[in-house]
Design a protein around this nucleic acid. Structure first.
Lengths: 180, 180
DNA sequence: ACAAAAGGAGACCAACTTGTCTACCATAAA
DNA sequence: TTTATGGTAGACAAGTTGGTCTCCTTTTGT
């Protein structure tokens, strides 16, 4: 992987996630990364291509993080506990792999890109599907209801933590899911 | 309420919700509404003021809609059923009060405005709190866990419906909540 | 050493952004 | 009729946007 290309993606991801894709222009990315505009366009054909690269990188990081969090979870109780404890850590900025919590980059990006047929929307949807699959792999109970519950509550917890500033969204989910 | 002011808010809300606040400039709002720029700035001191007015209007509509949906719900089972059936209708564009489903305007706006201290973020948080309170008013079970579960799942269902395109997010929530 | 590739600084471009202001028109009230 | 209020079309301004391009330097490969 080319060093300049990687630097651009890293910078773009940081800035896009922290501020919003439409709130950061490419000139800001150039300024922060120290890369020339010509170099940017030699690596990416457009801003959107850079956005997609940033989304892909974030996706990889998130799936890696999630996989680590669910490692060794051999009962459904452990899956739930490890997953939501991990999320709680993310919400409080203590998961260094994920950095400062600013909601979910994929939810945020879907909000900013209204066309459901766009590559961005499609990628965000794919990401959510993959997350669901990773969780499913660790569940022993084959009842789809449990996976649905976990999946939906995970999304709800992210929004509660970000929009409502709810510090205990994740632990509430644990309490609820233990009731099932 | 002044006719032109209302027209501007209506137009802004439609366009902002459908496309994103940062994707619609005031010139587009003027074009669609047929109002002059000077008139816009005589009623609103800035674009952000117009944004806040649009958020407030959406909030009023949503609370009114939710109140209607929960009318007559005198058991917790009914609350759950009526709430999530209403949401399902929204997700499939059949709730005319709410219009075309494009996720949650408040989640979307929070995504676009990254500063947690902004008036926009504060209003979105307030909205979520009010929604929670309306739901709470109808619940007879005083266990906070039920309210938490409903509240978080409602948020999760919105994201699942919008980002993941999950047509049955709302009915999944009903199934899960009936297990509690 | 030479050539090709990669990269830099930054000018240039057309379009767009938010907000201010001019000159004028229409309507309502006194 | 006159005055006050509300509104219109659109010019103006400074700045930003994403993208193209020129001239030059640095790095890499042969």
């Amino acid at each position: 992987m080319n060093i300049k290309r990687q630097l651009l993606i890293d910078t773009a991801l940081d800035l896009f996630y922290e501020n919003g894709i439409n709130s950061i222009g490419i000139n800001e990315i150039l300024k922060v990364s120290g890369v020339a505009k010509k170099t940017l366009y030699s690596h990416f054909e457009s801003k959107e291509a850079l956005v997609l690269a940033a989304l892909e990188q974030r996706h990889s990081i998130f799936i890696e993080w999630l996989t680590l969090k669910l490692q060794g979870a051999d009962t459904d109780e452990k899956v739930i506990h490890q997953l939501f404890t991990g999320l709680a850590g993310w919400f409080s900025d203590s998961e260094t792999m994920l950095g400062h919590f600013r909601g979910c980059f994929f939810i945020n990006s879907s909000a900013e890109f209204s066309n459901p047929n766009s590559d961005v929307s499609a990628f965000c949807q794919l990401h959510k599907q993959r997350v669901r699959e990773v969780i499913a792999q660790h569940l022993t109970n084959q009842d789809p209801l449990l996976l649905d519950a976990i999946s939906i509550m995970q999304e709800g917890a992210i929004t509660a933590a970000y929009v409502s500033g709810d510090d205990s969204a994740a632990s509430k989910c644990i309490a609820v899911l233990q009731r099932l």
